[in-house]
Write a protein that binds this DNA or RNA. Structure first.
Lengths: 214, 214
DNA sequence: ACTGCAAATTGACCAAAGTCAAGGGTGGCT
DNA sequence: AGCCACCCTTGACTTTGGTCAATTTGCAGT
């Protein structure tokens, strides 16, 4: 369930996190997606890039045997949709209510020049994910995940986790029960505090960083 | 220990796997690296891209606690070096004797246009790695690794594994002993055959694919 | 062919995480 | 307010894979 917002009526939003880098690329329309609604489905025809204005999007994939995995979470300013051929190899869904612009790169000469830095940023996200996934122990992965989320949320100690535990598990390659258990262990050790299920306050940066050892 | 080869003396090698896509980018020099020699080190100043002409390169990283992990293997035609900021966050080493061209993207207008497709290919490699790492069980990861290697080697059933078991382990996030054990299990089940330590013949594609379930 | 070293295999044991299952909280809907 | 559905937490048991250690294999150099 999505509805269109007329871009012209909104004017050029300089404050928008992605506005600058996307300016002049092409037809940019903002859609607002409700929680758990689909941006695109695995197998659908592709062609656009998407940039998150607000909210959170999970990009993932179903394996042939029905398991699901999440390759990334995108927050305000993040671009997704590269991970696609002629058809989408992945799906993208809003985690919470989210605003997303669809971008169709034009044939203009300078399009590649504008796309390159965006792509580099996406590449960095992939790298980060690799680092997270590579941690042998799950507590390392979760620690790295929390650190990176905090980093992407301006280094705040109070980290928002809009996604359910199952998403985190599917992102880290871990069962959702284990996510819950590790969080408990962190709490017991005084490393974090969980004011509510969807936010984590980092109390002891030092020990959390040590756990990552990336 | 590396030595320079004069590019002009070699002429334009149309048959070179990367020649076409790199033509006109900039100063391209071919260096030949002996097995286990360093292309660049973690922490060194960066600035170039590299393209493999022949051989195999591992790109990796040391964690602060001394463990090593491998983020990718590059074969003929693959580009690496994106994974770097002003200094290299990663190291790159030749696995076996390898020919590598260093490329300094110029300021030319069309440089981004040439780089974009190369980068997209690198992005795909990252995706593939993510898929491999995501497999919960190790036999899935190894199966996926073998399938992807075969794919990158023209779909041959006889797959070359120039890298040692420790590299494979560090790539899959698994101990080298486990790599060895899983290979044995595959052999016992008649899925593969290992004519020698550095090559694997895939005997039963069907069951190997089923194991990946990517 | 012989020696010596590095890489690979294999085994025994142990710790970590998955699975299955039961219970508890929370927010949305009527 | 009350009900229901979904998500999260926690526990018991089982499987998987890591670690340490002992061989074995394969290869380079003489």
């Amino acid at each position: 369930m999505t509805f269109q917002v007329d871009t012209h009526r909104m004017g050029v939003n300089i404050a928008s996190p992605a506005g600058a880098s996307l300016a002049g690329l092409t037809h940019v329309a903002l859609s607002v997606y409700q929680a758990n609604s689909e941006v695109y489905g695995q197998g659908e025809p592709a062609g656009s890039l998407y940039i998150v204005e607000f909210g959170c999007v999970r990009v993932g994939r179903f394996t042939s045997d029905g398991r699901r995995y999440v390759v990334g979470f995108c927050f305000a300013g993040d671009v997704f949709g590269w991970e696609s051929d002629v058809v989408h190899d992945f799906f993208a869904e809003a985690v919470e209510i989210s605003g997303i612009r669809a971008v169709r790169p034009g044939r203009a000469n300078d399009a590649p020049a504008k796309l390159l830095p965006l792509m580099l940023k996406s590449l960095r996200r992939f790298e980060q994910h690799l680092i997270v996934l590579r941690g042998t122990r799950v507590d390392e992965r979760l620690a790295a995940f929390l650190c990176q989320l905090s980093e992407r949320q301006d280094g705040e100690s109070l980290v928002q986790l809009p996604m359910p535990r199952s998403d985190i598990g599917d992102y880290l390659g871990v069962s959702l029960e284990t996510v819950s258990r590790i969080l408990r262990r962190f709490k017991d050790r005084g490393i974090i505090r969980t004011p509510d299920t969807h936010s984590v306050e980092i109390l002891d940066w030092q020990r959390l960083q040590n756990l990552c050892s990336a």
